[in-house]
Design a protein around this nucleic acid. Sequence first.
DNA 1: CGGTATCCATCATGATACTG
DNA 2: CAGTATCATGATGGATACCG
Lengths: 111, 111
Amino acid sequence: MKKRTYNCGLDAAVDVVGGKWKALILWALHREPLRFGELRRSISGISEKMLIQQLREMEVYGLVHREVHRQVPPKVEYSLTEFGRSLNEALIPLGDWGHRHMATIEAIPRD
Amino acid sequence: MKKRTYNCGLDAAVDVVGGKWKALILWALHREPLRFGELRRSISGISEKMLIQQLREMEVYGLVHREVHRQVPPKVEYSLTEFGRSLNEALIPLGDWGHRHMATIEAIPRD
DNA sequence: CGGTATCCATCATGATACTG
DNA sequence: CAGTATCATGATGGATACCG
């Protein structure tokens, strides 16, 4: 989240959901609330640092809700807010597109 | 474009359209082909360096077509391929979402 | 007009180790 | 279990100057 004004909606949306991980976190949480560890295991390749960093930002944005259950061992559950849910729905066509063209995308030369 | 395999379509799509500029470039080109200078003026805040860099990547991805008209002064037109057009359509709901929630997004505290 | 080439600052991401 | 701290690296972006 760098800017304060936007020229178009896409500009604003990219600013919110931008980066490698936020869209994937939204998707991982769209079915049910998950604990930190479950979330980490369900998003392959993410480090604990990036996961917590992105989750904190998404909490500030109002996309994600963080609920602490005071018990031993500690249990913290993350879930989507209505706002997060609405963003996730807006991402579905993009996910479908990626799924349809995955073979093409993987064939793109790197570097 | 960093990875070679993807867990889900959204993962792949984010890899293709990720970064601050590519979605905006797609949008700028969706109505009609534009010259380099027109493109630069229509995307506020982008530097020449980033514009040319992103365009080159999008050419490699097969999203954008670059057509050189040999004349004086030089004229180079950029347009969307069918692939680029399909990606742009998949981004429309996200753009709508951003447009609907722009006030909320601008009100999010920074840092 | 439509780029290219450098240099440089800053930011995003990653690896590893450690803690309540 | 759910994080934090620290350091390293690479990507991103801005400024400036130059070229066919």
